[in-house]
């Protein structure tokens, strides 16, 4: 396609080449060629104007959307998130209780945020409704309801210098405590996968 051909000046020099050598001193051809001299001067001006435009845009509140744009998006995102996956955690004569996975992840992430050297990534939580709830789970349901076993799979990024086994053990402990305190369930399994490093 002709449009995609390398665009050239009247003297045959490619504009791309000229642009990439703006910082280098003009060569012999460029010094004597009117096409190149002219184009070079214009391109230097363009480069300055581009930098000024970029800088001005980035620092001017006029180039920012209204706050209501962010609020609308987040209202919808939060509402959708809360309903994205509901886990039936408790059967009861008087009715069932389900908790959104997102609400449970909030508790998990809250616990993980308190452990230095760890960044929580994907978190998947499941309850097993197929199995009979185990009486040894340590759950205590004062109203006689039955609680389903909960399994937490958390993927994390770790800072390079931490001692992984110790940190993961602390993390697992903190998650267990937080879920017990804020939900009222002792998760039976907390699987933690360290999948990446990050710079602290």
């Amino acid at each position: 396609m002709a449009l995609e051909d390398t665009p050239r000046l009247g003297c045959g020099r490619s504009i791309d080449h000229l642009w990439s050598t703006l910082d280098a001193p003009a060569g012999e051809h460029e010094e004597h060629c009117a096409h190149c001299r002219d184009a070079r001067a214009r391109m230097i001006q363009l480069r300055q104007a581009t930098a000024a435009l970029k800088d001005a845009e980035a620092n001017d509140p006029a180039f920012t959307p209204r706050r209501s744009v962010r609020d609308s998006i987040m209202d919808i995102a939060r509402t959708e998130a809360r309903r994205s996956r509901l886990l039936a955690v408790q059967d009861h004569d008087g009715g069932t209780t389900e908790i959104s996975e997102q609400a449970l992840s909030t508790v998990v992430r809250f616990a993980a945020a308190g452990v230095p050297g760890i960044q929580a990534r994907r978190c998947r939580i499941d309850v097993s409704t197929a199995e009979k709830p185990s009486p040894t789970m340590g759950t205590h349901d004062a109203t006689g309801g039955s609680l389903h076993p909960m399994v937490i799979d958390l993927r994390v990024a770790a800072a390079p210098k931490i001692h992984i086994p110790h940190t993961v053990s602390v993390l697992r402990h903190q998650i267990g405590i937080s879920i017990a305190r804020s939900v009222g369930i002792y998760p039976v399994t907390i699987n933690i996968t360290v999948e990446d490093l990050y710079d602290d």
Binding site: M74, A77, S105, R121, C123, A157, D196, L197, Y198, D199
Partner: peptide, 23 residues
């Protein structure tokens, strides 16, 4: 690496429907 991994963590959490990470 730091900035990218940091963003990658946020993306992964947002994929998990974490609105705070998405924000």
């Amino acid at each position: 690496t730091s900035a990218r991994t940091d963003e990658a963590s946020k993306v992964a959490r947002a994929q998990d429907r974490d609105p705070e990470a998405f924000e």
